[in-house]
């Protein structure tokens, strides 16, 4: 009973905040609502006893990704009118996709594949069970090789991003104190000799 109350309250919060993300006018609010949506999701995951995933969701998405996102939203001057221009036009297509997705989800989750879980609920584990430890063990034994490759892929992503966005050195405006101290008068001031001129009027 208690679990159900928690589930439904967080579920409602998730749906509402997700709806707000796409309907509020201010992009900063939208990003903040997305934070709320992530937070509610992580609460639901906690109910499913996936505590590691729940915490990682908050740490990574809320703590890092969304903060970065907020920065970007605040830094960029986003033209909202243009972003919203096609909303009504694409609404039917979007609604159709959403309907199909919802229908297939009902079919899959309502299908036979989930009978076992629906009847018996989650497998009962003792209090000593930690899915963080389980995940860690799987990742660093059976899946060590893919994990290492994934690490290499992320490194390549960093290298590629830097190689493609870094501008040449001459465009940086960093000061060079050495050159500033060593500057001489001749470098800066040019004395020009010219004959004096009378005012014409």
């Amino acid at each position: 009973m208690f679990e159900q109350i928690i589930f439904y309250s967080f579920g409602t919060m998730l749906l509402l905040s997700a709806l707000m993300v796409i309907s509020v006018r201010n992009p900063v609010y939208a990003a903040l609502f997305l934070v709320l949506a992530f937070f509610s999701t992580s609460a639901i995951w906690l109910l499913l006893r996936a505590e590691f995933l729940a915490i990682v969701l908050v740490l990574v998405y809320v703590g890092a990704v969304m903060v970065l996102f907020l920065f970007v939203v605040m830094m960029l001057d986003i033209n909202l009118a243009r972003l919203r221009a096609g909303f009504m036009r694409y609404l039917p297509a979007g609604a159709l996709v959403a309907l199909v997705l919802a229908a297939s989800m009902v079919l899959v989750v309502g299908g036979e594949g989930f009978n076992e879980i629906r009847e018996s609920g989650l497998a009962e584990r003792g209090p000593a069970y930690s899915n963080t430890a389980e995940l860690g063990e799987a990742l660093f034994t059976a899946y060590l090789y893919p994990l290492e490759i994934a690490g290499a892929i992320l490194l390549v992503a960093i290298i590629a991003a830097i190689a493609l966005t870094q501008r040449a050195k001459r465009e940086t405006k960093a000061q060079n104190p050495d050159a500033q101290v060593a500057v001489r008068r001749q470098d800066r001031v040019r004395l020009v000799k010219m004959s004096s001129e009378r005012d014409s009027e």
Binding site: I149, A152, I153, V156, I159, A160, L164
Partner: peptide, 9 residues
């Protein structure tokens, strides 16, 4: 993916 990502860049 490792190969493709490097090639794209």
């Amino acid at each position: 993916e490792l190969l493709s990502l490097s090639l794209y860049a």
